[in-house]
């Protein structure tokens, strides 16, 4: 803003920094012309309802990545939560089910946090282990079968909507606002940035780094459980394999948004762009009747490209 003229380098930085939103806009506009359904309200509300579920966990994953950590097990926590929620819903009703499921998410997250913060295990391998164990747990409880719930209150809640927008996006917005607020404006949030930015320095500055390494996993566990509850309440069913691509999705949208895997920078507000981007692209693929395995293929390619891009730009930044 101080300079009136932009030189070539500024333009390049501008492009790199804003490549994702620009691509998103171009893509969305061209989709409007290619496919009529795309711009219909039904479809748009569909996109919104769809991405809000995973988006909740993506916020927490972003927070974990800012703190320099990573969690594969959120996918299993999600599946397990759909199961637990449906079981407890039938047995005890909606509110107790909600509380129990959230509690289980917190406990599972805390276990991951304990392994990483206290035992000092690399997050990758620790969460790989818990991912397997939790998925096993969900299978054991349900005997690998999908289970249903027929709780009427839940049915009413899941059908409630305003102009096609269900309650899930509202929850998502609340979660996003809370995350953005506390990451920017509380000691707690800044501690997460400091811990991810430089563990040793943060420790010497009197920041309780182990607490932050621990707490991001608890947040992730809780958010994955919340996502699971949202999903379970939407389809009134629970099954262990539900959400098995959640970890992949969360890392992808976080890094697309521009939060680097190196830790210490980025933010949930950026992840929103990543979520929109993925939401629009995969909605478009569905509309263009691209099959499931092809979509899976695209997901993998997108993840790899995004990680490569992040690595190349952040390393160039350093050099």
């Amino acid at each position: 803003m101080k300079k009136l003229t932009l030189d070539k380098g500024d333009f390049r930085i501008f492009w790199i920094k804003n490549a994702v939103p620009i691509l998103l806009i171009i893509f969305a506009i061209s989709m409007v012309f290619v496919n009529r359904t795309f711009s219909s309200w039904d479809n748009i509300s569909n996109i919104i309802n769809e991405f809000a579920i995973y988006g909740i966990t993506a916020c927490a994953m972003t927070t974990a990545i800012i703190c320099g950590e990573f969690d594969l097990s959120c996918a299993s926590v999600f599946g397990w939560s759909t199961v637990l929620f449906c079981l407890t819903c039938t047995a005890f009703g909606v509110l107790p089910a909600f509380l129990i499921t959230m509690l289980s998410g917190v406990v599972l997250g805390a276990f991951n946090g304990f392994l990483v913060a206290k035992v000092r295990m690399p997050a990758f391998i620790a969460t790989l282990g818990t991912m397997t164990a939790i998925k096993g747990l969900a299978y054991v409880v349900t005997d690998a079968q999908p289970i249903k719930t027929e709780n009427e209150t839940l049915y009413a809640i899941s059908k409630f909507n305003i102009g096609g927008i269900t309650i899930v996006p509202l929850v998502f917005i609340v979660v996003v606002v809370i995350f953005i607020w506390f990451l920017k404006f509380t000691k707690f949030g800044r501690g997460i940035y400091a811990t991810g930015g430089n563990y040793e320095v943060a420790r010497l500055s009197g920041i309780n780094v182990k607490f932050y390494k621990f707490i991001v996993f608890v947040l992730l566990g809780a958010c994955a459980a919340l996502s699971g509850i949202m999903y379970g309440s939407r389809i009134m069913a629970g099954w262990a394999p539900y959400g098995s691509d959640l970890a992949l999705y969360c890392v992808t949208v976080t890094v697309i948004g521009g939060t680097s895997l190196m830790g210490g920078n980025g933010g949930v507000h950026r992840t929103i762009i990543g979520i929109l981007f993925m939401g629009v692209i995969f909605n478009a693929l569905t509309l263009l009747s691209v099959g499931g395995s092809m979509q899976k293929f695209v997901r993998g390619i997108v993840l790899i490209s995004v990680i490569m891009f992040d690595a190349i730009t952040s390393k160039r930044h350093k050099a």
């Binding site: 295990m121 790989l128 282990g129 818990t130 397997t132 164990a133 998925k135 096993g136 054991v140």
Partner: peptide, 9 residues
């Protein structure tokens, strides 16, 4: 499967 996960950990 649960055991295997815990075994790795």
């Amino acid at each position: 499967q649960i055991l295997k996960g815990l075994l790795i950990i």
